Amino acid sequence: MAAIGTSPPGRSARLGLRATPDQEAVLRRAAEVSHKSLTDFILDTACLAAEQTLLDQRLFMVSGSQAQALMDLLESPEQVNQGLQDLFTRQAPWDAP
């Protein structure tokens, strides 16, 4: 852990933000009780939230029965879809004369 007020090696990008006095007070208090500098606390917390946001876009948690239902659908024979057949037989608008 870096000492308060110092920048660990490798940090070169600079970020800026504005906060209300109440937001600043909450962040400073949380950093204190976490034994982190304000910068480390904000970066750690923001990175955790960012990683979770990105994971939410890639990882879908389902129950065993839901996973099995999906596998059953994927393994079942294809079904005729008249709407898709009609769509793919039409000429694309950008190919029209």
Rank of each mutant, 00 (worst) to 15 (best):
A3V: 10
G5Q: 12
T6Y: 01
S7V: 15
P8N: 09
P9Y: 07
P9V: 13
G10L: 05
R11H: 13
S12L: 01
L15E: 03
G16R: 13
L17V: 13
A19V: 06
T20K: 04
P21Y: 00
E24T: 14
A25Q: 12
R28F: 08
R28Q: 15
R29S: 15
A30H: 07
E32Q: 11
V33D: 11
S34N: 14
S34M: 08
H35I: 01
L38K: 06
T39G: 06
D40Y: 01
D40E: 13
T45F: 00
A49L: 05
A49C: 05
A50C: 02
E51L: 08
Q52P: 05
Q52W: 02
Q52D: 06
T53E: 14
L54W: 06
L55R: 15
R58D: 03
V62S: 01
V62L: 12
V62Q: 06
G64N: 08
S65T: 12
Q66P: 05
Q66K: 07
Q66Y: 01
D72S: 07
L74H: 10
E75Q: 13
S76G: 02
V80L: 11
L84Q: 14
D86H: 10
D86F: 08
L87V: 07
T89H: 14
R90K: 13
R90M: 08
R90Y: 04
Q91H: 11
Q91E: 12
Q91C: 08
P93I: 01
